[in-house]
């Protein structure tokens, strides 16, 4: 096989007149694709507290406790059995543990876990990584 000394010379010289390939993040915004898996948000109105997401989470990052404030039961209708109030649930998401696999959002039967594309989630204070959605 033949050898050519300084094989990359022309390529290297053309790069003298090209812009660097490096992106200027954080000075310019980083783009992510539409399928990018980011932070999980929570819709308390849809949650039925089935705890499916808690069980499926590979990194034990989710807790679904009962909310402190609960709605009062609807007034009993004449001739109808008493309907209990729909229970309200919170969601505690430990972003430090989350591996952003979105398995919880796919498992949720009521689509109460909402997928977003947030990725700039770094914190200096670790306690801020625990998000309490109400």
């Amino acid at each position: 096989m033949k050898l050519k000394p300084a094989r990359m010379l022309s390529e290297v010289l053309t790069h003298l007149f090209k812009k660097p390939a490096t992106s200027g993040y954080p000075f310019e915004k980083a783009r992510v694709t539409a399928r990018f898996r980011g932070r999980i948000d929570f819709d308390s109105g849809k949650c039925i507290g089935c705890q499916m997401c808690v069980r499926v989470c590979p990194s034990k990052a989710i807790e679904i406790p009962l909310s402190e404030e609960q709605f009062a039961a609807p007034p009993v209708q004449q001739g109808q059995p008493a309907v209990p109030a729909k229970k309200q649930f919170d969601c505690i998401m430990k972003l430090g543990s989350c591996v952003y696999c979105w398995q919880c959002a796919e498992t949720c039967p009521k689509h109460a876990l909402i997928t977003t594309q947030d990725f700039e989630l770094a914190q200096i204070d670790p306690s801020k990584l625990v998000r309490h959605y109400k």
């Binding site: 003298l16 090209k18 660097p20 390939a21 490096t22």
Partner: peptide, 11 residues
């Protein structure tokens, strides 16, 4: 800087 530019970096 020259090396960086030739390697398509910022430097």
């Amino acid at each position: 800087k020259l090396c960086a530019v030739m390697q398509n970096r910022v430097g």
